[in-house]
Simulated assay, not measured.
Amino acid sequence: MSDATINARARELGDLLRARRGALQPADVGLPDGAPRRRTTGLRREEVARLAAISPTYYTFLEQGRDMRPSRQVLDALATALRLDEAERAHLHALVHDAPPSTTDSEAGEQVDDEVVALVARLDPHPAYVTGRRWDVLAANRAARALWTDWPARAPQERNMVWFMLCDPQAREVFVDWEAEAGAQLARFRAAAARHADDPTFAELIARLHASSPEMRAWWPRHAIAPLGGGRKRLRHPALGELELRHTVLNVADAPEQKLVAFRAASADATRIAALVDRG
C-alpha cells in the first residue's frame, strides 16, 4: 500500500471518528450532559477516549489523521464507544487493516437469513447450499443433502465442506474427480484463511485437518491459492449413477462472507433427483 493511500485512509478514519463523535450526545452513551457549561456539540474527545479505554492524546492523534495503525482491539473499543453498526465497524477495520474484522464462533455463531434459507429450499430439485467464512455448511436443500451428505445429521464440528472433502471417505465416492476437487477446495479455503490469520476458529480447523488428513499435511505446504468461481462438478450417487452439474457461486449481500452455491442439473437428471428426494 502506498504512502498516499495510507495517509488518505488515516484522514478518512479521522473524519469518520469526528463525525460519529459529533452525532452522539452524552445521554446516548450513559454520560451526564454537563449543561449549561457544555459547549461541545456531541461528545468530547476525552469522553470517547474514556469509553474506549485509550488515552485522550492517542484518540486526538487518530482524529487528526495521523498514521497510528490502531489494533483491532482498539478499533472494536472505538466502534462500541461510538455506537457504530456492523457495516460501520467493518469499514473502520478496513480503513486500517485493509480487511473487515473476523467474528469467532465463541463471539457469535454465523446465522443465515431466513429468506436465504427459503431461497435455498425453493431451488429443489437443483442442489444448493450456503457456506460461511470458513466453509461451514450453514444451509442445504434436500437435493444437496441427498447428493452430498446429510449435513444436519452430522456432528457440528463436521458440518464443514473442507472437512467433508478431506476427512470423510464418503467424499471420495461422491466426487468423480475427487483429488482435483479436494485440492481446489483446499486452495480456496487457503485464500480465506489468509484473510483471517487472527481468527482462532480457522487455526482450530486447520489443526484438526492436519491431524486427520494426510492430503492436508501434503498439500498445505504448497500454498496453493484458488479464487471462488463457478464451473461443473461430476458427482456419483449409488441410485442415480454419475451426474454432471453446472454451478455458480454468489455472495450474500447482507453477509458477504457467506456463499450461496447453486447447481443446475439437466432436465432429466433434475426429474430423477426430485423423485429421489421425494422418497426421502
Rank of each mutant, 00 (worst) to 15 (best):
S2Y: 10
D3M: 10
D3L: 10
A4S: 11
A4K: 14
I6L: 14
I6T: 15
N7T: 15
E12Q: 15
G14Q: 06
D15Y: 07
L16E: 02
A19K: 06
R20P: 05
V29M: 04
V29K: 05
P32T: 06
D33S: 09
P36Q: 07
R39P: 00
T40W: 00
T40K: 03
T41W: 00
G42S: 01
G42P: 04
G42H: 05
R45P: 00
A52W: 01
S55G: 14
S55D: 05
F61A: 15
L62D: 01
E63C: 08
Q64H: 12
Q64T: 14
G65Q: 03
R66D: 08
R66G: 13
M68L: 14
R69I: 01
R69G: 05
R69E: 04
R72D: 08
R72W: 05
Q73G: 15
L75D: 00
D76W: 07
A77F: 02
A79S: 07
T80S: 11
T80I: 09
A81L: 07
A81E: 00
L82Y: 05
R83V: 02
D85K: 10
A87G: 07
E88N: 13
A90H: 10
H91Q: 04
D98C: 10
A99K: 15
T103K: 15
T103W: 09
D105I: 08
D105S: 13
E110H: 11
Q111F: 05
L119M: 14
R122W: 02
L123V: 06
D124Q: 07
P125D: 02
P127L: 01
P127D: 02
Y129W: 10
V130Q: 09
T131C: 10
W135V: 14
D136S: 09
L138C: 07
A140G: 01
A140H: 02
A140V: 01
R142D: 13
R142H: 12
R142P: 05
A144V: 03
R145I: 10
A146M: 04
L147C: 02
W148E: 12
P152H: 09
A153D: 01
E158Q: 11
N160C: 00
N160Q: 04
M161D: 13
V162C: 03
W163C: 08
L166V: 02
C167Q: 01
C167T: 07
D168N: 08
Q170P: 00
R172L: 10
E173T: 13
V174G: 00
V174P: 00
F175W: 05
V176M: 03
G183K: 11
Q185I: 15
A193D: 06
H196Y: 12
A197Y: 11
D198P: 04
D198H: 09
D199T: 10
T201G: 12
A203L: 07
E204T: 12
I206E: 10
A207T: 12
R208C: 08
L209C: 08
H210V: 14
H210L: 12
S212E: 12
S212F: 00
E215D: 14
E215W: 09
A218W: 02
W219G: 09
W220Q: 06
W220M: 09
I225H: 13
P227H: 01
L228Q: 15
L228C: 11
G229S: 03
G230D: 11
R234Q: 13
L235E: 08
A239G: 03
V249M: 09
L250R: 13
N251E: 13
E257F: 06
E257C: 13
K259S: 14
V261F: 03
A262N: 09
R264L: 10
D269L: 03
A270G: 12
T271C: 11
T271V: 08
I273W: 05
